[in-house]
Simulated assay, not measured.
Amino acid sequence: MQVKHLLLIAILAVTAACSSKETVDDNLSESELYQQAQTDLDNNSYTSAVTKLKTLESRYPFGRYAEQAQLELIYAYYKNAEPEAARSAAERFIRLHPQHANVDYAYYMKGLASFDQDRGLLARFLPLDMTKRDPGAARDSYNEFAQLTSRYPNSRYSPDAKQRMIYLRNLLAAYEIHVAHYYMSRQAYVAAANRGRYVVENFQETPSVGDGLAVMVESYQHLTLNDLAQSSLETLKLNYPDNASLEDGEFVPLRQDDDDRTWLSKVTLGLIENDAPLPPGETRASQDVIRQYEEAEDEIPDELKDVDQQLDEAEGKDRSWFSYMTFGLFD
């Protein structure tokens, strides 16, 4: 089955789930509500379980199942692909019951919800590079798992949280390297060197430390800071001899130095570039429209081009790009 079919099925399922509004019998007792919610959880009917657990908590706020319902509501939200609601429910439980015997579970689910927050529908079906996405949710998840492992080191959830923290730390380090490479592509070598040094200093024991050293070497070379470049290169060769930037022990930079940058590019470390001045009467938008039209015209099959030419000849004129874009309405 193709990816687009999977996406369509998933979107339809989510839409159907969100559109259904279940009503709960007003005459159900607390235990009956709780048992029905448990049945929904067992049957993976998480939307229905959320409805019943919320109803249970609102009708019986001081009942025997109230605290357990709050805990299971966190899980139901998480399984129903509502990470923000799961995090809010976990935060509420921690605030209301800081001494509860199972409060470590709330900390764990809070971190887990953040862990999966940026792995949404598209990320599950498409090969997206997670190191190039906004790391905000990854940072939140790392900090929340860190709270769990520091406050409850003997918790049954701590081993899993520690493993996830290793993954998140590697992910955050790789993101910093991605940003450093972007700065280098913009010839912002000071910013790139700072990012590389940040990885080396703060993400030890991650696979990205070698890449951070490589970024520092290349950035310092472009900045003609030869002593810093040499010391960074020696550290790279000593600790990461198999790094991709080294070939037969020699450093291979990602990009060659250019001296044709404008003064504005140099002053702003490459973050602002001067473009060539536009001809009189033209704008960037008009240039983009013309470029898009020319690219689309190049993709027209030859047999269709012949038909267009015959029509033009029959009309006795050559049509301009503006005529094509407006379907001849202004000819």
Rank of each mutant, 00 (worst) to 15 (best):
Q221S: 12
Q292Y: 11
R87T: 04
S219K: 05
S45A: 13
Y78S: 11
E82W: 04
A17T: 12
A101Y: 09
L33N: 11
D26S: 09
L121N: 07
E91F: 00
L73A: 06
A296V: 06
H5N: 06
G196L: 05
Y198R: 07
L171D: 07
A174L: 10
N170S: 12
Q36L: 09
K162W: 01
G63I: 12
A229L: 05
Y167D: 10
E273N: 11
K305P: 09
E84N: 07
L73H: 05
I74K: 04
K79D: 03
V217C: 10
G196A: 08
A174Y: 02
G136Q: 07
V103A: 10
L56Y: 07
N274P: 00
L148Y: 06
Q163D: 14
S232M: 07
L41S: 01
M325R: 14
A86Y: 04
L238F: 05
T262I: 05
L278E: 11
D259P: 01
V215Q: 09
D104H: 11
E250I: 11
R87N: 02
S232I: 02
F125A: 11
T15E: 09
E315A: 14
D40M: 06
D298E: 15
D211Q: 10
D318I: 13
F251R: 06
D129H: 09
H97A: 05
N243V: 09
T149W: 06
Y240W: 10
H178L: 00
F93T: 09
M109P: 05
A69S: 15
Q36I: 00
G270R: 03
P279Q: 05
P301K: 12
L264P: 02
A66L: 06
K4P: 00
A180K: 04
L148W: 02
L12R: 09
